[in-house]
Structures are given as structure tokens and as C-alpha cells.
Nucleic acid binder design. Sequence first.
DNA 1: GCAGCCATCTGTGTATACATTTGGGGCACG
DNA 2: CGTGCCCCAAATGTATACACAGATGGCTGC
Lengths: 234, 234
Amino acid sequence: MRASQRVYEQLRAEIIDGDLPPGQVLAEVEQSQRFGISRTPVREAIGRLAAEGLAEQQGGRGVVVSEVTVDDITPLFEVREALDIQAARLAALRGNPAEFTALADQLESVAKDFDTGPVHHDSSAAYYDLVEQMDRAIDSAAANPWLDAASSTVRMQLARVRRLAAHDPSRLAAAAREHAQIARAVSTGSAQLAEAAVRLHLSNALKSALAKAPPHPPAPEQADADQVAAASSS
Amino acid sequence: MRASQRVYEQLRAEIIDGDLPPGQVLAEVEQSQRFGISRTPVREAIGRLAAEGLAEQQGGRGVVVSEVTVDDITPLFEVREALDIQAARLAALRGNPAEFTALADQLESVAKDFDTGPVHHDSSAAYYDLVEQMDRAIDSAAANPWLDAASSTVRMQLARVRRLAAHDPSRLAAAAREHAQIARAVSTGSAQLAEAAVRLHLSNALKSALAKAPPHPPAPEQADADQVAAASSS
DNA sequence: GCAGCCATCTGTGTATACATTTGGGGCACG
DNA sequence: CGTGCCCCAAATGTATACACAGATGGCTGC
């Protein structure tokens, strides 16, 4: 595989996983030494990261991992809402009803598992797998490459902020039922119903995420991140 | 300015304007000679173009200007619909009503100009300027950087396909009224009304665009672009 | 004469060296 | 002692050189 591709995927994974924290400088020479390659492919990889918003120029000198705070959750959800709703609408119109009926059944089954007893790792893993499966099914049914591309960027950013607001296990059952409702709505072929189901789910998901980490209500003094960090560590 | 930036902007403009037609190969050495610089910044510029979908890899060897056909109009409008609706909804909630009231008044005034007599170049230029002004006002009021970024990509592609479906002068008056309705709806602060106005406008705009260049109805044989080109030239 | 294989050649992928710019630190002056 | 300017150093931006892969054309064997 091309070296630039490897470096890009590696750096992207490290940024999303939080191994490279926001504000971390991505020096070309440093990374090239770390990966044992030259600056050229590293430079290309960092350029792609910057284009996707995972990194950004620090003045004219240096690229740093971009900041993501709880304040970004709401704007990101606004974009996700627009894209997911449209994807669900199109999937309702174009998708294979049987496929989504099956997904809805499986999701409801998982939701019942969550009800009966404590949440096992197996069942939650099965749930996440089903959600990913449904996302792929919706994207595939929507059959719109540009929609996929736009969703991809937003989902990457959301994967980062998900670390900021640890999910609530007690919401798993409700979330599973919401996902089942989405699949069921898509299977009916009604764009309006699909839109309503997605809107409902995202509204609840956003509320849950913000409940854990409420956005900064007041901003009396305009202190930058460094000053805040210094103050909290003192 | 950085050479890579100049080359990027130049190539992007040439692709959007159609000076570099779809399928045109973007050879690094060729472009570097044309701009009188080395391959390195040209490579970076082409990489950015590929990331935005204006160019794409040609089977591992070479990058070519990406194809855009009338068949892409509908998918692009589907994404645009999702993003523009959300932007208008947010602008309705957060924007300054007076600003959009003023825009609505100006747009209605232009629409009346279109009615009274033949369309002059001045009035159509003023109209396009107002539309651009309103787009910026909506984006600004929505105050969502990620929404802006997603819209930017789609708008760039739409600028390309606009060349495929020359706009209808007789629709200018109706389009101006639709834009005025959007501004008016945003000024009322009703997200639902704004959504309806945008949806109506885009539906009409898409219909008009497709009327000029209907999508390929049947595809009896699955011939790729090269074969089609070869057949038509023989 | 045709088909398959090999050489060559063009073009991208990577490495390295040079230029430029920016940011900071130190020194001098007020 | 504070402030401002200048010099330097480090990191990015650009250029050039090398390596490799894929395609194309000719050549040879059948």
C-alpha cells in the first residue's frame, strides 16, 4: 500500500481515538521519523487530515490536531440531522422493504434483550453491529455518492466527540427501539415517516449527549485553551 | 501566495468553467511545466481537487477531471436540498428578521423588473448578486461551519452541471419570486415555513434543469464512457 | 499472419536537498 | 527596567533526483 495512505489512516485513527489529543502538533519531520519514511507522504497525509477538518493550520507555521468540544456537538448534530433525514427519506423511496423489515425485527429483539437483564457486552456489540449494518443499508438504498461523502466527514467528527460524552447504558434499550422504528419506517416506504423517526432519534440522542456534558453556558472572560488548561492545572 | 494554492485555484476554476473537460488527464509534469513550477505543489493541488471530487484516480495511473453528466443533477439536488433546508431552518431560528425582510423586498423588486420588460443584463446580474447575498446571509445566520463546508462541495459540483443545463430566462421571474419567498419565510422565524419555501424552490429549479436535459431514460447496454465516445466518433 | 512475450518508456510515488517564512529570544536603547 | 528591533533557528514550502509500476510497442516464435 502507498506510504501516504498508511500514514493517513494511522494518524486519522489516532486522532479519532484520542491518542493524538486536540492541540497536538503534527510536525512533518517528527512524523516522518516515527513512521520511518520521508516528509513527502507525511505531508500529503497531513494535508488530507486538514482538508477533512481533523487538523488545521496553526498560523502559517505548523499543523495541529483540531479542537472538538462539547460545544461542537449541537452543530454537528444539525448537519447529521439534515443528511440522515435525507438518506432515510431516499432509502424509504428506493430501498427493499424486506431488508429493513428484517433489520427492524432484529433491532427490536436486541431491545428486548436490553430490557430483560443487565447489558452484556455481547448484546451491546450485536446492537452496534446492527446499527452499522442499518446505516450501510440506508446509504446503499439511498444510492447517492455525494450524500455518502458528506455523511462520512460528519460521522468522523462525531466519532471524536463521542469520546467527550460517554454514552449512557440505560439509554441503550430506548436507542435500539428508536433504530428499530427507523428501520420500520423505511420499510414502509414512507419518506415522511422515515424523516420523523430519524428526527425523533437524533433529538433524543442529542439530548442524552448534552445531558452528560452540557455546553459552556457563560463565557465571562475570553480565555483561550492554554490559559484555561493552565488555570485548571494550577 | 503559495504556489500550490495558486495552481489549485487555477485548476479548480478551469474545471468548473469547463476549460478542462471531464476525462482530461491532469499530468503532474505537464501542469508543472505549464505553471513553471515543480511537480510538488502541482501534486498537492491535484490531491486537493481529487479530495473534493473534481478529479479522480484513473485506475492507479493518472488523475483525470471527473465526469459530470445530467444524471448527476438529481443526486446533487438531493444533497443540496438536505443542506439548504437545514441552513434555512437554522437561519429562520437564529437570523436577524430585518435583514431577510430587506432581502425579500429587493428580490421582489427584481422580480417585478423581470415582468415589465425583456430581461436586461443589468437586472439579471443584480438578481444573481442578490441570490449570492442571500446565500451568504443564510449561511452566516445558520452559524454552522460544518454545514458551510458540506454545502461548499455540493455547490462546486452544481456550478459544473449548471453548464450542462443552460438556464431558462423565462424562469428568472419565477425563480426571483421563489427566492423572495425563502427570504420572507426566514424573516418570519418559522423553520417549517423556511423549509417549505426552499423545498418548493429546489423542486422547481430541478424540474427546470431536467426539462432542458432529461436524464438518459434507458440504458439497454452497459457501455462505459470510453466505449460510448469511441462509438460516437466512429 | 497472429499471438504472446519482453523491452522500453512514460508517469507516478518517494526521498533528499535547498529556499523561504515565521516565531522567539536576546541585545540595545530609551 | 521596559520596550522594540534584529538576528537566528526551526519548520514549512519548493525543487530536483531516484525508484518503481503500468502500459505500449515491437519482435519473435508458432
